[in-house]
């Protein structure tokens, strides 16, 4: 039951992009086509789950016993960068088709603030290992959901007549604002 609450909360109520404002750069950058949105979403689900697992273990078994919690930011970003690099190498070797599909998105994911953000949120919320993993998967799903809905809208937007000054980023941000307004309808479902 607790896990279901975490999932609903992370995907709909506290959606990481539309409510927590993390990962807006990739949200605006790769949401022009439906297919690239799916690719990026897949990459984020994969990396976020793995990164949260590893950073959680690093925190519990290295940072906490040594009492060097202040090194959290530096350690996490290094772990994430190394992990993404490793995933890229392994994926290239083991599964070329998967690499073809997700490969180009992997370097972008290192500087995606959702990954570092979720790793830090997990520690702040004092989740245990299982809860952390569920939280990571749910947040990645929330990101993917927002990205795919947004890509769908933007593909339609291409055919509409937009005032010159609003073309490009401004209309995308205004659309995201309206989407965020829609997601506010979920507020209050889960505490």
């Amino acid at each position: 039951m607790e896990y279901i609450l975490i999932i609903i909360s992370a995907v709909f109520v506290n959606n990481i992009v539309l409510t927590r404002f993390l990962g807006i750069c990739p949200f605006l950058g790769v949401s022009t086509r439906f297919s690239t949105a799916c690719g990026m979403g897949g990459g984020v689900i994969f990396v976020m789950t793995l990164a949260t697992l590893v950073t959680y273990l690093v925190n519990v078994y290295v940072l906490a016993p040594l009492g060097i919690g202040f090194m959290q930011t530096v350690t996490y970003i290094l772990v994430i960068a190394a992990l993404v690099q490793m995933v890229e190498i392994i994926m290239k070797k083991v599964s070329p088709p998967l690499y073809q599909a997700l490969g180009v998105y992997l370097p972008l994911i290192t500087t995606n603030c959702t990954i570092l953000g979720v790793a830090i949120l997990v520690i702040q919320n004092k989740f245990n290992l299982m809860e952390s993993i569920v939280f990571a998967i749910a947040n990645a799903l929330g990101f993917t959901l927002a990205l795919i809905i947004f890509a769908g809208i933007r593909e339609q937007l291409e055919f509409s007549d937009i005032p010159e000054a609003l073309r490009g980023a401004p209309i995308a941000l205004i659309t995201a604002g309206l989407l965020s307004l829609a997601f506010m309808g979920f507020a209050g479902i889960v505490k």
């Binding site: 539309l18 409510t19 404002f21 000054a165 609003l166 980023a169 401004p170 209309i171 995308a172 941000l173 205004i174 995201a176 604002g177 309206l178 965020s180 307004l181 997601f183 506010m184």
Partner: peptide, 17 residues
């Protein structure tokens, strides 16, 4: 709240454009 942030920045970019 969240939507206001997106809207304000969207219009600001339009003005700067």
């Amino acid at each position: 709240l969240a939507p206001g942030g997106f809207l304000v920045i969207g219009y600001l970019i339009a003005v700067v454009n």
